[in-house]
Structure formats: structure tokens, C-alpha cells
């Protein structure tokens, strides 16, 4: 059984049109998945369903073998954390320390253990010097890192990033992406919803959503070779691959085309 299994999942907000329709996907432990799709394609709804924030109309979700339902939601949610788009919407603590503690408090972690964990995970996300800082004095990127520390402290090993970099400036974005790479190396399962094609390129596999359905779910390299995936879904190819595709298939262009592919797929 895969680490995350979604079986014939459908969901509608008002019993009218399906926001999600017949989604069946498997995700393995330690994989990095990127989810691409137009606004309103159902990406965020799928993310909410995965963390048990929405109850599917039909279908089932298994996380590490456990069926997600009302009874299991509390246990399952420990395994899976979500970082949202707007850093200000998810900072609940008065200080960095409080914010990291929030999830653990709900799990009734003993105080001594909690204090140790706060330090440990603050260090992991490079925020140990800022434990007493208030959210007003943190950058967007720093707030997102604090959110990650809170998730790690609950010992979750699946993290969903729902456009978590989209409100950050290029520098903070780069920093956060670097950090996600280390989480991936540490063996965490990463699910990253993004409009940023260069970020999607870092994933092992890409899930393309279209009008609530799975349009494609394949290895990143495979998806990138299929032009129709991009034209059908109003996605833009990465600049390097668009150029590679536009160069004709003759020998003299091969070297350049190879380098363009190399550039696009640097991880």
C-alpha cells in the first residue's frame, strides 16, 4: 500500500458542480509531488481533503494505511501538516516560541519535552535566535519557516505547501525552496501546490489538475516532454524548455538543446 492513497474522491461545495471529480492517486513515502493547475482547478480543495479539513462526498483517503474519517482525523492530522499561502493567516502565537508550541499543546506534549522540541526545531529552520520575536517583526519567509517548525514538532512527515512561496519576494522564496529541499532529503513527503513552473521542476512527479480532475500524474521529466499538457492547461513551459522545443531537431542544435534541458532539470 502507498503512503497516501486517494480512491475515487469527489467533492462539491454546494452539491452542485463537483470541485473534485473522481480523483485516484497514490503517493509514496518520501516523494516530492508538485500540483499544477489553473485557478479553480481544485488544487487547494484536494489539499484540504488530504488533511481532513473537508469531508469527501464520495471516495476514500488512506494516510499510511489509515482510512481518514471523523474518528481517525485527529490521529491522521498528526502525520500531515499544511503551510498556507498567506504567512499572516497561520501565525497563531504571540511569539515564535508560542507559535511552534501551538500544535504540541493540542497533543498534550509534556512541558519539558515541549521546551526541548521548540529549541530543536527552531534550530532546524534557522530561527533559534528569534524565539522571542513577535510576528510583526518577522519577514514572510521567516513566518513560513516558523509554520514548518510547528509542523515538524508534531512529528508530521508529510508537508503540504499550498502556494506557500507565492507571497514572498524572490530572495525569501529561494530560501524557502532551499529549505524544502533539505526536508525532502531528510525523507519527508512533500506536496507542493504552485503556479511557479520553476518550482514544480524540483519535484519527482507532477500532478496536473484541470477542472477538478486529474489531467496527468507522471514523472517530472515525462510531463515536461509533453507540450500538450501545457497548452491544454494554460500552463507556461519553463523558458529553457520552451527554447529547447523551438529549436529544430537537427544535430547542430542538439548540444544547445541538451544544455537547455540540463538547466531546466537542475535540482
Amino acid at each position: 500500500m502507498s503512503y497516501i492513497e486517494v480512491k475515487e474522491l469527489s467533492y462539491s461545495y454546494n452539491n452542485k458542480t463537483n470541485v473534485l471529480e473522481d480523483i485516484s492517486i497514490n503517493i509514496e513515502k518520501g516523494e516530492w509531488i508538485a500540483i499544477l493547475g489553473h485557478n479553480g482547478s481544485g488544487k487547494s480543495t484536494l489539499a484540504k481533503a488530504l488533511v481532513g479539513l473537508l469531508e469527501p462526498a464520495t471516495g476514500e483517503i488512506f494516510i499510511d494505511g489509515t482510512l481518514l474519517n471523523e474518528d481517525s482525523a485527529f490521529e491522521v492530522r498528526k502525520k500531515i501538516g499544511i503551510v498556507f499561502q498567506n504567512p499572516d493567516n497561520q501565525f497563531v502565537g504571540v511569539t515564535v516560541r508560542d507559535d511552534i508550541a501551538f500544535g504540541m499543546e493540542n497533543l498534550c506534549v509534556p512541558r519539558e519535552e515541549m521546551l526541548e522540541k521548540i529549541k530543536f526545531f527552531a534550530k532546524k529552520v534557522n530561527m533559534l535566535d528569534s524565539l522571542d520575536k513577535e510576528p510583526a517583526n518577522l519577514s514572510g519567509g521567516q513566518k513560513q519557516r516558523v509554520a514548518i517548525a510547528g509542523i515538524l514538532a508534531m512529528q508530521s512527515d508529510i508537508i503540504i505547501f499550498d502556494e506557500a512561496t507565492s507571497m514572498l519576494d524572490p530572495f525569501s522564496r529561494e530560501e524557502l525552496v532551499k529549505y524544502i529541499k533539505t526536508l525532502h532529503k531528510d525523507g519527508l513527503t512533500i506536496i507542493m501546490i504552485t503556479h511557479e513552473i520553476n518550482e514544480a521542476l524540483l519535484a519527482d512527479r507532477i500532478l496536473v489538475m484541470n477542472k477538478g480532475k486529474v489531467y496527468a500524474f507522471e514523472e517530472t521529466e515525462v510531463i515536461m516532454k509533453k507540450k500538450e499538457v501545457f497548452t491544454d492547461n494554460h500552463l507556461e513551459l519553463p523558458v529553457a524548455l520552451d527554447l529547447a522545443n523551438s529549436l529544430e531537431e537537427n544535430e547542430s542544435h542538439k548540444e544547445i538543446r541538451d544544455k537547455l534541458w540540463e538547466y531546466a532539470l537542475i535540482k
Partner: peptide, 8 residues
């Protein structure tokens, strides 16, 4: 334009 897909 933040939060919009590339086409948007």
C-alpha cells in the same frame, strides 16, 4: 498579479 495562474 500575486496568487494568479500564469494565464491569469
Amino acid at each position: 498579479t500575486s496568487g494568479l495562474d500564469p494565464a491569469g
